[in-house]
Amino acid sequence: MHAIIVKEPGGPDVLESADVPSPVPGPGQVRIRVAAAAVNPVDAATRSGALADAGLMPPFGSRPAVGIGWDVAGTVDEVGPGVTRVAAGDEVIGLKDRLDVPLGAYAEVIVLDADAVAPAPRSVSAIEAATLPLNGLTALQALDLLGLPSGATLLVTGAAGAVGGYAVELAAHRGLRVVATASASDESLVRDLGAEMFVPRGVHLGDAVRALVPGGVEGALDAALLSVAALDAVRNTGTFVAVSGGPSTPVPLRGITVHNVWIRADATQLAQLTALVDENHLTPRVADTLPLHEAPKAHARLEGEALRGRLVLIP
């Protein structure tokens, strides 16, 4: 079968199309024939070596090749021993959350643990469904870390992006009052997603948010990695969740509780996201589709364009 692999870190041109043996599901695993695979920033960070440099995955060379791609939508074509919840022929979405693996979602088939897979939404295409697992779970798990009650105020940075857009919709569905920040041209978009208040990018965020919410918001979900600029908008003893680690995680000043959301595959939560899509509470967004062999072009676009929605690869 065909798959996209990386042997040495580098730019988009190191993405290599290769013929590799088709993987076989082991105990507790399923094999999925890939219909669509979304392209995410973490894929570029894997390819470039940034994750290995940060100690989040083994260095290149520890395996002959590294697989690329986390998000998948497709059809189960084989199940391993002990799997009863999923059957061959099921249309599913799934998340590959292990970094040190020889094959990722950029492939014709992928093997995942059964607890990383859930039924696909019925109301959207596989192309749209492929944008849901990584970004939807990140937003959902970040909101769970925040733990804000209905009626509380929440700042979402990068609200027009993939994680931020899902976060706005999920927060509004939970009854939170969302203050969104994004480019001024995206105000209509994020208000349609459920934001009650809007702050355009480029102003002093803390002052602008506090003018709308005296004393500051009760929580912030920092999808744009604004760090201390977003923390300044949070009231004393509030809660802050960063979507990435490292320098984007601020010091917990003023009694603010600071978390990082480290994404994990979760079949139950994936099923919740599927239901929300089918109930029209979540809106998958696709920027464009490309054939699998054009993965280098997709990565170049990911790094060079301001995309609204995800690029999706089609085997």
Rank of each mutant, 00 (worst) to 15 (best):
P247H: 03
G67T: 07
V83L: 14
H2A: 02
R85K: 11
D288W: 09
L143E: 11
E78T: 04
P250G: 03
L290M: 05
G11H: 04
R31W: 08
A275V: 03
A88R: 00
A224P: 01
G206A: 14
T257V: 01
S188A: 10
I256L: 05
V156K: 01
T46W: 06
S227D: 03
L146R: 11
L103W: 00
V251R: 10
T84K: 15
V111E: 13
P315S: 01
H259W: 03
G206F: 06
A220D: 03
V199I: 10
V234W: 07
G26Y: 10
D186A: 14
R191C: 11
V213I: 13
P41D: 04
A54V: 00
Q29V: 02
D53G: 03
A223K: 04
H281C: 08
H259N: 05
V286N: 11
A18E: 07
A118F: 01
L311N: 06
P252I: 06
M197F: 10
S22Q: 12
T239N: 12
D288G: 08
A224Y: 09
D90V: 02
P214A: 12
A229Q: 14
G309A: 08
N40A: 13
S188R: 10
R63Q: 08
L103V: 08
V117E: 02
V83P: 10
E128A: 15
V203I: 09
A129L: 03
